[in-house]
Simulated assay, not measured.
Amino acid sequence: MIGGFLAVVGIVAAFLGILTPDALVALLDRVAPVLGFVVGLTIVADLSAEAGLFSWLAGVAARFSLGRVWVLWLLVVVLALLCTVFLSLDTTAVLLTPVVVLVARRVGASPLPFALTTVWLANCASLFLPVSNLTNLLAVHALGSPAPLTYAALVLPAAVVCALVPVVAVGIRYRHELAARFPAASVEAAPDRTLFLVSAIVVVLLVPALVSGVEVWIPAAIGAAVLVVAFAIKRRSALRIGLVPWGTLLFAAGLFLVVAAAQALGLAQLIGSAVGTGTSFGDLLRLSGGAALSANVVNNLPAYLALEPVGGSSVRIIAILIGVNVGCIVTPWASLATLLWHGRLQALDVHVPWGRYALAGLGLVVVMLPLSILLLSLAP
């Protein structure tokens, strides 16, 4: 509903001439590959989950955790990191959340440390590669379209800090729960070995393909096509119209249109006066803090698009990314991944009070933003 409303506002802006035809074409040229990547990767992730790949990975983690909850938790940390970095934060929120909750219940452990680890790493570990977050894919244009590994080198120190802080926080807060033990668990076989193998091969090949420098929508589309063909042959019932994330597409398209219209009306000048123009530690922290505040007021996607024109340099663009990616863990609507995560938890009857979640997220942001910006400002 929100996406539809935003899309209507954007269409009205186009009819009124606020968004010119040239501006619309430029916007489409920029966001179409991003949305194409979202569609392709969502189909890959959903069909891989249908084939039992993610459940098998979680089962392997339980099997090799030696009956210790803290070892299982660390394996979940690794799985969440890999999933977020290479398959995007939304994939982690949508697919990994129910898997880790069910595995935690299977071994008699509290699901809360596993659930919080998943959502915090989904957001905070989404700096590493362009494919890790939609905001990163948008920022690649402003950064001069660097190769994925070149981009990773730019953000690496800040990204490492932002991934470590939530892990340390969960480890300290839930140290007693994580110290428990459980009987050895077995790994369940995949329901269809052929589909499982095809899904595993597609996901494994996607990892190098997404960091190869090829436009990311291309390997995502190829992987999706391969899995669609495999499921059409083996399990046609799994192919449904809902595999395409229509709601996400409408929401993102509406946001892009509205922010583009706001930019045409002078939003950049208004924001620029609030976040400054320098590159010192104080200037970058002010910019990143403003980005975090904007993300929590609206959402991290429009917050990035609104702030990008006041970037002006690679270091300032990265500061904006740190703010919108890492700072969006306070309010539930700041990140689409957080809303998707909460929806999965509700379906599993796991309740996380928003007030407690917001306070914990605020505490993490207060620690992560200054540390990551300090490393960014000290980088050569």
Rank of each mutant, 00 (worst) to 15 (best):
H176E: 15
A62R: 06
E188K: 03
L102K: 06
E188R: 08
L195M: 07
I18V: 15
L75D: 01
V12T: 11
V76T: 10
R235Y: 01
V94A: 10
L156T: 06
A252Q: 12
T91W: 03
C328L: 13
V244M: 10
S377N: 04
L75Y: 07
I271A: 10
A303V: 14
L250C: 12
F54H: 00
I11N: 02
H141D: 13
A104F: 13
I241W: 13
A189H: 11
E177I: 13
L257H: 02
A260Y: 07
I43F: 01
A14L: 13
V8F: 11
A23Y: 05
A61H: 01
P33N: 07
T118M: 08
L143H: 09
L112G: 04
R68V: 06
A104H: 08
V204N: 02
G242F: 05
A220D: 05
L371R: 01
I233V: 13
H342P: 05
A163S: 13
S294W: 13
A142S: 15
P332C: 01
V297W: 00
V100Q: 05
L28M: 10
C124E: 12
R68L: 11
V99L: 05
A7G: 12
R68T: 04
A238C: 04
P332F: 12
V365G: 01
G327Q: 11
L257M: 05
A51V: 07
S294F: 15
V211L: 03
L129K: 01
V25F: 07
G247Y: 10
L35D: 01
L138D: 02
